[in-house]
């Protein structure tokens, strides 16, 4: 029998064929979105913020502070977005998952194949984001390139668990709950726009527990050159654990759904 990896790649190839239909639109939004955010918040709002001193931001301009946080947040959004509606669609509407399940692919291969595709899309999205960051002058050194795997890992720490859950759903009702009550609050309060130290003390531990805070801290530490070895291990370790947990649980939830 073909090894797991080989079978997962077969599912990846399905998604690549599928992506040939839609890639233009996704490239457009992965260029435009960072431009809008960096322009409006980084440059527009940043001019005001910088006038009042940036000691709280570690002495860098607001644009430079904000950009890596937005990078991590964009990776989160991409991870959640790709692993919600498309998964329900695959199992309920398009039924390409049932087609794949009738072939030698096992439920776990189908899951991991899609995660490979998500990884590839994260590479593209985060790469484009970094390029836009550089064009805005929000990059301080070539070492920022290490923020690329960091952001991708942040995206996967959302993609894997969300997909493990999405495959259990029968309607899209749960998705808007996740968007409204998980994604948006994390986006606003995980250190993307302002340091978490600005939050009330009781709320800070909540922020520290979320994967996005770790992703933001990691990307920002790399981008500003302030990351300590200890923090690097802590944040990376946390994100890896969440991702692996999602990959393991998803194998079970996929099996329950596709091999009922």
């Amino acid at each position: 029998m073909a090894a797991s990896g080989v079978l997962a790649v077969r599912e990846l190839r399905f998604w690549l064929t599928d992506y040939r239909r839609t890639w233009r639109g996704t490239i457009y939004s992965s260029v435009i979105n960072p431009m809008l955010y960096l322009g409006a918040m980084g440059v527009g709002l940043g001019t005001l913020v910088d006038k009042h001193g940036t000691a709280h931001l570690g002495g860098v301009s607001y644009l430079t502070f904000l950009a890596p946080g937005l990078l991590a947040a964009a990776a989160m959004q991409s991870g959640i977005g790709q692993c919600s509606y498309p998964i329900l669609g695959s199992v309920k509407w398009n039924r390409n998952y049932q087609a794949a399940a009738a072939s030698p692919l096992r439920p776990g291969d189908i899951f991991h194949g899609h995660q490979l595709f998500v990884t590839m899309r994260l590479l593209m999205n985060c790469g484009i984001f970094l390029a836009v960051m550089a064009a805005f002058g929000a990059v301080r050194s070539p070492a920022v390139i290490f923020a690329l795997p960091a952001a991708m890992l942040t995206g996967l720490a959302f993609a894997a668990p969300v997909e493990a859950w999405a495959i259990t759903q029968n309607s899209d009702r749960g998705f808007s709950v996740v968007f409204r009550f998980v994604m948006i609050p994390l986006f606003l309060f995980s250190g993307t726009f302002f340091p978490v130290t600005q939050l009330p003390a009781w709320l800070r531990p909540v922020a520290y527990a979320t994967p996005l805070w770790h992703g933001v801290a990691l990307c920002r530490g790399i981008s500003l050159g302030t990351l300590t070895v200890g923090d690097a291990f802590l944040h990376t370790g946390y994100l890896v654990v969440v991702t692996v947990a999602g990959l393991v649980v998803g194998q079970r939830t996929y099996r329950r759904r596709l091999h009922a």
Binding site: M1, A2, L7, D18, N94, R95, N96, Q98, A99, A102, S103, P104, L105, R106
Partner: peptide, 17 residues
Amino acid sequence: SVIRARLGVVPQEDTLD
């Protein structure tokens, strides 16, 4: 997985893309 490699399946509901 090995068995499915040697089966052809026409399910009750089409799963065409």
